[in-house]
Amino acid sequence: MTLLLAVVIGVLYAGGLYMMLRRSLGTLIIGLALLSHAANLLIFTVSGLARGRPPLLPDNGVPAGPVSDPLPQALILTAIVIGFGVLAFTLTLMHRTYQITGSEDIDELRSTE
């Protein structure tokens, strides 16, 4: 499964990067979202996959058996929320840029004027 997920991550990265390399504002957003998924999945996969053992403790507080690693999950949880914040901000900025410049070609945004 690690191999399969590694391929999924590779495809997500390649897709995200390709979308960001295009000159259009709209594809930049899509690319950003894809990259964010790719990064989250990367952390998740690298920390070791364990099928169906959530890091929840029974009532007595002592784990019944091995559970999946809670720390990467906490990291990813943070990353998902921050990724959303960044995406929302970028999206608004892009929209505003398009409104002002009337173009969605990033190559036309070279000057700071």
Partner: peptide, 26 residues
């Protein structure tokens, strides 16, 4: 509110982008 994605630049640019991003993915 945005237009459909524009396709900018000649074909070889897109090919180069494809190669670079594929290398990144791999």
């Amino acid at each position: 509110h945005l237009p459909d994605f524009g396709v900018f630049g000649p074909r070889r640019y897109r090919l180069r982008n494809l190669i670079v991003s594929a290398a990144g993915g791999i």
